[in-house]
Nucleic acid binder design. Structure first.
Lengths: 158, 158
DNA sequence: TGTTGAGCTCAAGTTAACTTGAGGAATTAG
DNA sequence: CTAATTCCTCAAGTTAACTTGAGCTCAACA
């Protein structure tokens, strides 16, 4: 009693990916524009995603939630193998990278927090020689300024 | 040998404030628009700042460096006394507030980091039931979404 | 006194990360 | 087969936090 004999759905539609990840369809298209995912297309031009793209997009969401920019995430994702579907070990390697960065950020925030108390009422807020003003201490805002490790890591091609 | 008998400079010009804080003149004007500082004006319309505004702006820079938004910082600054120049204790109270928030953010980041390892390779990245996807865990981006404590603190007027 | 350098206002541009909308084609449900 | 969805592209809008530029006034100095 086969219905229409559709020989495999070829992949997931953008709507299905949106449902599975919780992302908006527009966001998923945007991520493609930003080179975070590379769905193929049907002959009529519709996007078709692999199951593994769910994981990929989830990773994007998680790391974004950690405060990383799309540029940083893209740079990281480029370390995944292109020729095959990334496996558990691949993802773990990538995660280790983010863990390191996260650790660094936490350390930085703790330092900032610890200095706040000592510094805020002491007069050095005039900035001339306030330790809080060592600009290395300041957290970065959105993707600008000296960037985090992830963009230009030691063993990336160039 | 008095020169011109200028009876007190009345306050600092915006350029002087820019020099002292390292902020751009345009940024200082913007902060006024955002109600972070309230300089008075000369009869010809030029801004004149009090010395204490240096500290105020420094505080803005520092807390921004910690990742707080202008809206959050404005809300916090509103707790300073309006009738008199804030003293050391005033600033310390304010700092305590930020310290708390910073602690909370650090804790949140640590939790996120700790879950990353356990979660990333385990299959739960399909998100259906991944702990990383408890949305309370995610760091907020720029001033949107559920906001941090500072906007609506328990003992603010309403 | 005159000419620079500072200031002023207001409008528009900038970046990140998306969303919204217009106008049209393809898929799916009944 | 037709109507309702879904999808597509491309342009423009959105928010935060500023910067840049035009056009003009004001202050400081020789």
């Amino acid at each position: 009693m086969k219905k229409h004999l559709r020989l495999r759905p070829t992949g997931l539609t953008i709507g299905q990916i949106a449902d599975r990840t919780g992302l908006a369809v527009s966001a998923i298209r945007y991520y493609e524009e930003q080179a975070l995912v590379f769905p193929d297309r049907t002959d009529t031009g519709q996007r078709r995603y692999a199951r593994s793209d769910i994981r990929r997009l989830s990773f994007v969401m998680i790391t974004q939630g950690m405060g990383f920019s799309i540029a940083e995430i893209r740079a990281a994702l480029q370390r995944l193998p292109e020729s095959r579907t990334p496996n558990k070990a691949d993802w773990e390697n990538l995660s280790a990278l983010f863990r390191k960065e996260l650790d660094a950020r936490i350390t930085q925030m703790q330092a900032l927090r610890d200095k706040l108390d000592g510094c805020i009422g002491c007069g050095c807020l005039s900035l001339t020689n306030c330790k809080l003003y060592n600009k290395d201490d300041r957290m970065q805002r959105r993707g600008q300024g000296p960037r985090f490790l992830l963009g230009d890591s030691p063993d990336s091609p160039a």
